[in-house]
Amino acid sequence: MRHIISLQLENESGALSRVAGLFSARGFNIESLTVAPTNDETLSRMTIVSIGDDDIVEQIVKQLNKLIDVVKVTDLTATEHIERELSLIKIAINNESQSRIETQFDQFDAKIIDVSEEVYTVELAGKSQKINDFINAFNTDEILEVSRTGVTGVCQK
């Protein structure tokens, strides 16, 4: 099952590699990982998406809690939460496809942020599934490049 694990950790050099190293050393899987400082500049927020059975995720959470730099670990999936991901996607266009493609942009609420003769670059935020669906809405040769941030999230309470 897919789990979103949210960490607060000391904003110190090496903290990221401790977390990443833990996943590789123990054979845990990382689907995505995002990290940035929070409003408290001494703390970073890291959001990890991992896929595993409940007992593996339980181990992940326990092992993360053991890291000295980690202040708090929350399995967001176990609570009411909001998740979002940002993506920048380059899409090839031509006269023939333009109107079909723009309709898709409207449907998904994708924002065109750069236009060149044959390429649109759009920004799309939402749940990961929405971004997957958006990408799948085009022909594979129309998608030129995809850059996704990975999921970030917060508890609703």
């Binding site: 007992d55 181990q59 326990k62 092992q63 809690n65 053991k66």
Partner: peptide, 11 residues
Amino acid sequence: IDPSSVGKVVG
């Protein structure tokens, strides 16, 4: 003492 020892190998 270590919660991660619990349930790691044996339930």
